[in-house]
């Protein structure tokens, strides 16, 4: 091993603890005084790291830069939500990036507003989503099924009962009722079709 060669990377010479303290102070200065100099220190430290993380996660330069920009914008705009007692600056910024990535991926997959990162990790809980969606009123109940079942023609009902309730095989049912297997099959199919049809009418 070579001795006496100093480490080149300036960033890596900062100990994590000192760095966390320094970054915390900068974030407080951004929150209290909108200090651009402090923000640029935070930016210069985190932006390249976020880009690296984002590239790995998104696998695409443009999306990665979008993630960096959104994350750092939130840091600038919501620095007052940072609480050093709750965690380090890197933890806070990581959670913001993770949340933005989560929501970006959902948008990319064309999912509408379903589960959003704020539900899971309310780190920037100022952003509240709109809550207005109509409830699902129409639901089929077991009782309805039972009711519809009663409406089936007697022959179909007997077959369905034997197969689905008594757990008999179609062949057993055919033997018991002394009818061809094909008839059991067609009655089953017709009965299920009918039940489905009745369920659809009910909607």
């Amino acid at each position: 091993m070579l001795v006496g060669i100093p480490l080149e990377q300036s960033n890596s010479t900062i100990k994590p603890k000192e760095c966390a303290t320094e970054m915390s102070e900068h974030l407080v200065a951004v929150a209290d005084a909108r200090c651009k100099r402090s923000f640029s220190r935070v930016f210069n430290y985190f932006a390249p790291r976020l880009r690296s993380y984002a590239l790995k996660q998104m696998g695409n330069e443009a999306l990665a830069m979008e993630l960096v920009q959104d994350t750092m914008s939130n840091v600038w705009q919501k620095a007052h939500l940072f609480n050093a007692e709750k965690g380090s600056p890197s933890t806070w910024i990581f959670t913001i990036a993770r949340n933005i990535r989560f929501d970006m991926l959902r948008k990319l997959q064309n999912r509408k507003e379903d589960v959003c990162s704020d539900d899971l990790w309310p780190v920037l809980c100022e952003q509240t989503a709109d809550l207005n969606e109509a409830p699902l009123d129409e639901q089929v109940t077991l009782e309805q099924i039972g009711y519809l079942f009663e409406e089936l023609p007697v022959k179909q009902k007997a077959v369905i009962e034997a197969i689905y309730i008594d757990g008999k095989s179609q062949q057993e049912v055919a033997n018991e009722l002394s009818i061809p297997l094909g008839t059991v099959k067609s009655r089953t199919r017709l009965a299920l079709q009918r039940l489905k049809g009745m369920l659809n009418d009910n909607d």
Binding site: F43, A47, R49, L50, S52, S90, F94
Partner: peptide, 26 residues
């Protein structure tokens, strides 16, 4: 988060990549 902090690319021209972004954000 600690992994995030340790992640950094070797050859990386910060000013070229992030020049506008910082001023836009602030």
């Amino acid at each position: 988060a600690a992994e995030l902090v340790s992640e950094i690319e070797e050859s990386f021209d910060e000013s070229a990549q992030f020049g506008d972004m910082l001023s836009q954000i602030t």
